[in-house]
Nucleic acid binder design. Structure first.
Lengths: 226, 226
DNA sequence: GCCTACTGCGAACAGTGCACGCAGTATGCG
DNA sequence: CGCATACTGCGTGCACTGTTCGCAGTAGGC
């Protein structure tokens, strides 16, 4: 008997007691936990406790923690809530996806770590379908489209991660101190200058919306000058 | 007493026995272990055993597993082995970095998961310095340069990940089966078409070097048609 | 009314990151 | 020299992890 990804497992059961929970319940609990206390706090036991269930009970629904992660990613993907069909204006379509993604990754910063590895559930597939359809007018061939979908997702996740203020705490403070020391190190002038500029501009006077649009534009039209 | 990142800790010691290992030894052992058995096999105990040391001994050198990850990333970054100064031809400079990165990520696929989160050691800083300097002729402003550095790293890591054949094993087989079922699902035609095309072209008759150059070119000049 | 397929779950197992504290070692100072 | 001191390696233990096993209980089909 081969292992299966959670999305292909049969889920019909006629006999016995009704399951007390659903995959969606589990996903919701896990997402809530990750939002509140970080991805590291999402343990099988913790999710089970959130549902008022025993730890071993979760294994009636999922086969591994990987399955749980897949559920979480799919649930976040549902927040894209895209229309059935792209408009045909590829810049507008991709911009819409990017903005929805930005919002989702700001709500769920942990999702960035999971989305690259997760196996695609139905909501993720909807997202991919929309993006691939939206890319049709660009004339890119198929490998390039797939490549660009991953690129866009990565870029959006990275952007959202950096615009949300860093999580306060011990490790974050150490990070910030290290960044400051890099900014003050004259032996790597370009890096020091860049870090100094970023630290100075931190009060977000440079509107992030503008940076986001500009970054997207670079993705669409490249970084080449002129 | 505030926690510190591993790169800023004092490392002078005059009294007592000479340390039996060095940070570089530890990094080398951890990288070797990750290359051989995957990132999950890199536990404190396993790395210590690789060095012929007790588990608790490692904590004389590092303060946490995060420190170990930082060491590993910095060691991989050393493999870029970039010249002191970029040439001034930004396309050539960035291409060089991308190619070195591709090779490094193919040798150490696990590094992709770590590089985004790691705190920058000296070798990583050298890499960043070179890239930021190389981006100067593009006329991008500083936030855009920093953004692009992250983008390039992500894209290269992602590319290298996908061109290396997937790790054989139980989970990988389940993944492949799921992909095939997506390719056969007519309810999302664009996605199905894309997956079918990718699965068909798997025998790598399309030279990956060519795909790599083309992808880089898209990064530099954008995806806009015409 | 029972067989049977199901459910929830306590307990246990191997493994993890990490902290404490002790034994041993080498250096600088008197 | 001798010794206090600052270091090193590390056994042991703790709280926790993902996962498995087997058992008690429940409810649909015949």
């Amino acid at each position: 008997m081969t292992t299966e990804v959670i999305w292909t497992r049969a889920r019909a059961s006629r006999k016995g007691p009704r399951p007390a929970h659903s995959l969606d319940d589990i996903a919701r609990a896990a997402v809530a936990l990750a939002d509140a206390k970080g991805l590291a706090a999402v343990s099988i036991r913790a999710v089970a406790a959130e549902l008022g269930a025993g730890a071993a009970s979760l294994y009636r629904y999922i086969a591994s923690k990987t399955d749980l992660h897949d559920l979480m990613v799919d649930r976040v993907a549902a927040e894209y809530d895209l229309p059935a069909e792209p408009t045909g204006d590829w810049v507008a379509d991709l911009t819409l996806v990017a903005e929805r993604g930005r919002a989702a990754y700001r709500r769920h910063p942990w999702a960035a770590q999971l989305s690259a590895e997760a196996s695609w559930g139905p909501r993720v597939q909807d997202y991919l379908e929309f993006l691939l359809a939206a890319l049709e007018p660009t004339g890119l061939d198929i490998p390039e489209r797939v490549d660009f979908v991953a690129l866009l997702n990565n870029w959006v996740a990275n952007f959202a991660q950096h615009e949300g203020q860093p999580p306060d705490g011990d490790a974050a403070a150490a990070r910030a101190a290290h960044l400051a020391s890099i900014a003050a190190d004259p032996s790597r002038p370009h890096l020091a200058g860049a870090m100094a500029a970023l630290l100075r501009a931190d009060p977000a006077d440079a509107h992030p919306d503008l940076l986001f649009r500009r970054g997207l534009d670079r993705l669409f039209h490249g970084i080449a000058p002129g």
